[in-house]
Design a protein around this nucleic acid. Structure first.
Lengths: 224, 224
DNA sequence: ACCTGAACACCGTTCAAGT
DNA sequence: ACCTGAACACCGTTCAAGT
């Protein structure tokens, strides 16, 4: 057969079993199945039918793989702003923040992976440019727009980190309900006792929307 | 001697070289010297002139040690609210948020340690009770006060995580200045290009105060 | 009661050697 | 060019045995 006797000029030898894209995809699948702590280079190699050392031809270190995973996770979120005119600046900023949270939630330990790396790929930079763009076009100054990006991004990542930690196996509720309830019933922490139903609520979307609204209302006040 | 034949009921045998308090303190010292990645049970044991296995008489797992470290880091921050009447609710809340950030900044990788654990000791709960108390006494509803705690805490931890990551060895600036500058000069990301001076600024206090102000202004709007 | 010594079951990373 | 095999220098954790 021609395909055996005349290998294509680009790919002499056997076709590579590995490449960056396939490795990142397999790593994200493994992350979803087993979580970040179980994502080892050896297990990933096993899932790709290869020895662990082979991965280092494509990623200089595990950290680089994690960064590529983080970048892949936030693919497309820049588009959440929508076209100019579709909603005012606060609604468009809210959509971007929600898209970031949703992207992180889409993968087990997604926020931990994202927070633990410093992705500077087109998806991450595109998101940043989009958010800053929405605010600049709405009349915000360059300084305020840049700082607003940090505020929204840091709050969103911080929130989702907590959210995924609370939802992880072994966690009762948002602040480990059992321990809280004990300490609180003992009479200390009267204010926590009074707000216990909300504190132990697992409606994280409501918590997120509350904080997001604070930031947007705050931005509205800054704008004038 | 009586002390040999009649060992005190609490401390027979040689005095223990280890105890929780001394171990946590040594671990925090080691953290400051070498960072979280270098803080291993074996190195900590070495610093205490003991075998690694001995640590497990006081901490069931490394995670428990890290939780105790996190709790110790935020000792006293609840007091930052000050007595009732010393500043209005927004100033008292700001002081609490700043105290949290300062406490995390006081230890290398402090935010990573705090975010990676779920301390429920008196320092952490005291801080939470204090912040919720400030808002409830100012007339905020229980639900809003509880959610405001999450917003402020998640933003503060998220911000400090970024701040300490940016300050870590090997990082140029806030968003890896070099890579950003390249991508930005290429013409893509026009909004990032325009705001580059602020984005790459290392004045993290200004960034933090901006976000904190957004949250407090947002809370002011919610209050009415 | 408190700690040692030694083991168990792993890690990330490197690199000569094979094909 | 791409991957194997094997090693290096570690990890967290457990637990019989010593004192």
């Amino acid at each position: 057969m021609r395909s055996m006797s005349l290998p294509s000029s680009r790919t002499r030898g056997r076709p590579a079993r590995l490449d960056r894209a396939r490795t990142v995809q397999t790593a994200l699948d493994l992350l979803n199945e087993s979580g970040l702590d179980a994502l080892t280079m050896r297990r990933l190699a096993q899932a790709m039918d290869v020895q662990a050392g082979a991965l280092y031809r494509y990623f200089a270190a595990k950290q680089d793989l994690l960064t590529a995973m983080a970048e892949h996770m936030v693919d497309g979120i820049a588009d959440a702003a929508g076209p100019t005119g579709e909603g005012d600046w606060s609604e468009r900023t809210a959509r971007l923040a929600r898209a970031l949270r949703t992207a992180l939630l889409a993968h087990r330990d997604g926020a931990r992976v994202f927070a633990g790396t410093h992705a500077t790929g087109p998806n991450t930079l595109g998101f940043a440019d989009s958010l800053v763009g929405v605010l600049r076009e709405a009349g915000f100054g360059d300084g305020d727009a840049a700082r607003a990006l940090y505020s929204v991004a840091n709050f969103t990542v911080g929130h989702t980190l907590e959210e995924q930690a609370a939802l992880a196996p072994g966690e009762t509720g948002s602040v480990e309900g059992a321990t809280l309830r004990e300490a609180v019933t003992a009479g200390t922490y009267p204010h926590l006792a009074a707000t216990l139903p909300v504190l132990t609520s697992t409606d994280f979307t409501a918590h997120f929307e509350f904080g997001l609204r604070l930031l947007l209302d705050g931005l509205r006040a800054v704008r004038t």
